[in-house]
Design a protein around this nucleic acid. Structure first.
Length: 574
RNA sequence: GCGCCUGUAGCUCAACUGGAUAGAGCGCUUGGCUACGGACCAGGAGGUUCUGGGUUCAAAUCCUAGCAGGCGCACCA
């Protein structure tokens, strides 16, 4: 448990025990009470809005109430040493040395789990799910890293998380892809010119796939596309998935499960899913409303099965069947999500690219319908990535033809920097990715800055020949933190809050921001030694004050936990 | 036209499920360090949080009407 939860619980109990003397009759909004880090200038450890929240419904003056609560705090909560009412009725609290030390002890005891918000739900996170028609590109990278780190974060809290990849190995795009491979094979085998007609994939990697297939299947028949299709599809998919898995590996990402769309269809799960929806009257046979504006030539008014997604907040009902009666992509996806529901997850999360925003309502609706509103699907969207190099938008088209591949990126920057920078923004915001910045070994590069703090800590450990895994426990009478250490400590105490809010809103970007701030405090303290000898960490090969070492170790613990979640490495030397 | 996302310092962005004097980095500016305990540190200037209304003790945050930008609006995948 973190210190905020811990003390908040004590505060709540104290208020309930004393509600008569405080003249509190209405405690409905007790849950709105929070315990936070006060703004820095106040120089306190904790701050609560309790009086502001309770005064109104009980028709008491906020300041009067705050002062009464203040007295209770001092009297009954042993770790609260100094309590002050400030502003409109906030109560600021400074912890006693004993209180601080007991919390420090907890951190050392929890160590690799310090900050975790304990939870034991089951999550399924579907991410990347790039079409298996070629290697990953930049846009996939962002979602891939976001999904991976979100999984790490939720696992860190103790949840069971399954990372899943949905292979869209069915439909027209796959046929076009396989045909492209087919033609490339003929090109190699019979010297037949590859004509890049519409819908075919022109990229060089198709040629490589063709080569690989030929190498292993010298006698493969490519006389007639229809006849070769089945075998070639299987071989081509194997190749393209190998490309994708390799890209993922380079990014440091592994999925637990790869689910195949073709599999779902073969198992007839689609008709089962539709039947399930039908049973609850969510499916009707009818006509789609024609698209607004000018009718396209393809538009046909045909009776078909339609999912009534508007019942669950969608803008329009969605077709489950195409003109020819076959299932739509959406219908297959409904089946896929039914499969996930049947695998008993509390929470489903889909990570999508910005271009799939319009799809969210219908699939969320489907999950609600299939699960009788028991399972919640949460779709998170990653906005576009814009690349910059030399201050200009960066466009590169090497092997791919028309897109920048993950490999192109990784040729320029290392995995750690890529991961950190991709996370250093809220997923809802477009991300400018500047190659030059990421490669710098300066403060401009936040990855470096955080890693450097950790490396500096390790230089101390080396100089003193001590072990970073030791606990530094200090007796209260010998504990005299200076102002820099107090600041650091408050930041360290804040860590569980960061984890909590990052987990709650699925916003892992809060972690890199926090780590940067923590690193700033460290570098700043470190530099004090250059200005004033009394702040030097090491003098004559020794540490004079245990506090120094304790704070340095605490910082190391938090940076390590944070970077582990981000999946970014921490060199001990740089 | 409809839906989703975004709008905060010159630029790129934070702001802990409504909190106190809205914070960082870059850029600008002033100073310190000349070091492997290196690749940094400290200070300064810089704000009508897109606009108008509303809710609240308290609004960048919630509601509402607009404005601007991005993405999407198939029987594709």
């Amino acid at each position: 448990m973190n210190i905020f939860d811990n003390y908040l619980q004590k505060i709540n109990k104290l208020i309930l025990d004393n509600k008569k003397s405080l003249n509190l009759k209405n405690l409905d909004n007790l849950k709105n009470i929070n315990l936070e880090v006060p703004p820095e200038q106040f120089n306190f450890d904790l701050s609560t809005n309790i009086s502001l929240v309770l005064s109104k419904p009980n028709k008491i003056d906020s300041n009067d109430l705050a002062n009464k609560i203040k007295e209770l705090f001092i009297k009954f909560i042993i770790h609260f040493e100094k309590v002050e009412v400030a502003g409109p009725g906030f109560i600021n609290i400074k912890l006693s040395k004993e209180g601080i030390l007991s919390n420090i002890k907890d951190i050392f005891n929890n160590r690799n789990f310090y900050g975790a918000k304990k939870s034991n739900k089951t999550f399924n996170i579907e991410f990347v799910s790039a079409n298996p028609t070629g290697p990953m590109h930049v846009g996939h990278c962002r979602g891939a890293i976001y999904g991976d780190v979100l999984s790490n974060l939720l696992s860190f809290n103790g949840n069971k998380v399954v990372k899943e990849y949905y292979i869209n190995d069915y439909g027209n795009q796959i046929e076009n892809f396989v045909e492209s491979v087919y033609r490339r094979i003929r090109e190699i085998k019979y010297n037949e010119k590859f004509i890049a007609k519409e819908n075919l994939y022109p990229g060089d990697y198709i040629r490589e796939i063709a080569n690989n297939i030929l190498k292993q299947n010298k006698n493969i028949a490519v006389n007639n596309f229809k006849d070769s299709f089945k075998e070639l599809k299987q071989l081509s998919l194997k190749e393209s998935m190998a490309l994708i898995k390799n890209d993922l590996k380079l990014l440091g990402i592994t999925h637990d499960i790869f689910s195949s769309e073709t599999d779902l269809i073969n198992k007839d799960l689609v008709s089962k899913a539709v039947k399930c929806l039908k049973k609850d009257n969510y499916v009707e046979e009818g006509f789609l409303t024609p698209p607004k504006g000018e009718l396209s030539k393809d538009w046909k008014k045909i009776k078909r099965l339609i999912f009534k997604s508007t019942l669950f907040g969608d803008d329009m009902d969605r077709a489950l069947q195409k003109n020819d009666g076959s299932w739509t992509y959406f219908a297959n996806d409904v089946a896929y999500h039914m499969d996930k529901i049947n695998r008993k997850f509390n929470n489903l999360i889909n990570i999508l690219g910005a271009d799939h925003t319009g799809y969210i309502k219908r699939i969320t609706a489907a999950v609600l319908a299939l699960s009788k509103k028991k399972v919640n699907l949460n779709c998170k969207v990653c906005q576009l990535v814009k690349l910059y190099k030399d201050g200009k938008p960066f466009k590169m088209s090497k092997r791919a033809g028309d897109f920048i591949s993950a490999q192109d990126l990784l040729n320029e920057v290392d995995k750690d920097s890529l991961r950190f920078m991709m996370l250093n923004r809220s997923n809802d915001v477009e991300l400018d990715f500047d190659f030059d910045k990421v490669k710098e070994k300066t403060k401009d590069n936040p990855v470096f800055y955080v890693q450097y703090a950790y490396a500096r800590i390790n230089s101390i450990v080396r100089a003193l020949n001590i072990n970073l895994n030791d606990k530094i426990l200090i007796a209260p009478d010998k504990f005299n933190p200076n102002i820099y250490e107090e600041k650091i400590l408050r930041k360290i105490f804040e860590w569980p809050k960061i984890i909590e809010s990052a987990s709650f809103k699925y916003e892992p970007h809060k972690i890199p921001y926090y780590l940067y701030e923590l690193s700033t405090l460290f570098h700043s303290y470190w530099s004090k030694g250059n200005e004033d000898n009394k702040f030097k960490f090491i003098k004559n090969g020794k540490v004079e004050r245990d506090e120094t070492l304790a704070f340095v170790f605490l910082i190391a613990i938090v940076i390590k936990n944070g970077m582990n979640i981000l999946g970014v490495s921490l060199p001990e030397k740089m």
